[in-house]
Simulated assay, not measured.
Amino acid sequence: MNLLGPREYRYVGPADIFDQARPDRRGHPITSHDDLSAWLTRQTAQDPEEPFTYVIDLAGTLRLAPQRSEHVACAGREPVLGAGEISFASSRGTWTVTEISNQSTGYCPDPSSWPAVAAALDRAGLDHPPEFTHPIVFRRCSQCRQRNIVKDDNYVCAVCGNSLPTTWNMDSPGTPLP
């Protein structure tokens, strides 16, 4: 972790997806419950209780986009403090975060990104779980350079069978830049 604050995650996914994202278009900023309620009301193509794409930008603001949006597009190609999928439920006119993950294969944020995510949700006044409801562990294989999702603490590359590091390394030297 960065001693000066939360880790910044740069995009580590496919270059063609990065190239399609427009820097002048980002996900909708959510800074209050009213922002969220208004934005969800406009999302007629998606059930508000289904997951949405989110990022936490470098200013610490939650940004939302429809579910099938790429995280790098939601971030306007910029690095992020967190990224994943988020679901909401409404009770008596109040929206609450019901599920949240760090599932973003473009940024591959570590579960340790939770404090930055929680802080953005708190600043927006949104009730949320105490941690990721679906944390995902990402590692890059030092042998074949492929991105991996670690399941059941099995730190083995799914592509070449090499051992994976136990610490986050998605932006390690040799990682191709978009």
Rank of each mutant, 00 (worst) to 15 (best):
A83R: 02
A124S: 04
D16S: 06
A83L: 01
L36P: 14
G84I: 02
P165S: 09
G84E: 02
S163M: 09
I100M: 09
T44M: 12
Y9W: 12
F52E: 12
C74I: 03
I30S: 09
H28P: 00
L177S: 15
W95A: 06
I30L: 10
W95K: 07
E8L: 14
S163T: 13
A118L: 05
G27H: 03
D34Y: 01
Q20K: 15
P14D: 06
S104H: 06
L4N: 14
E78M: 15
L126K: 04
Y107F: 15
V137N: 01
P14T: 01
P176Y: 04
F18H: 15
T105D: 10
D127E: 05
D171A: 10
T175C: 15
I86E: 03
H71D: 13
A38C: 02
R25F: 13
R140T: 01
T53D: 08
D16N: 08
T41R: 14
L177P: 08
V55A: 12
A116Q: 10
P23G: 12
I17G: 11
L164R: 07
V159S: 07
R22W: 10
L126M: 08
A116T: 06
G5F: 12
A38P: 04
A119D: 12
E99W: 14
L64E: 08
T61V: 08
T31H: 11
L164D: 10
W168N: 04
T94P: 13
T41P: 08
M170K: 10
L121G: 05
R123F: 08
R123P: 13
R26A: 12
V117I: 14
P51C: 14
I136W: 02
E49Q: 13
C160H: 01
P178A: 06
L126Y: 09
S163C: 03
Y54R: 04
E99Y: 14
E131S: 11
T167W: 08
A120S: 05
M1K: 07
C144K: 07
N162E: 10
C141D: 00
I149E: 05
A21N: 07
R139P: 00
E50K: 15
R10H: 11
T105K: 05
G125Q: 04
R77F: 02
E50W: 13
G174P: 12
N162S: 15
F18V: 02
A45V: 09
Y155D: 01
A124L: 07
R25D: 09
E49F: 13
G5D: 03
R140C: 00
G174N: 07
H134Y: 05
V12A: 07
L3I: 11
G27F: 07
S172T: 13
L62G: 07
R63F: 10
C108Y: 00
T94C: 09
G125N: 07
M1R: 09
A15R: 12
A158T: 02
V12H: 00
I136E: 08
S101R: 12
P130L: 10
L36R: 10
P178F: 06
V12C: 08
L36C: 10
D24W: 13
H128N: 04
P48I: 08
A124H: 06
P6Q: 00
Q103E: 14
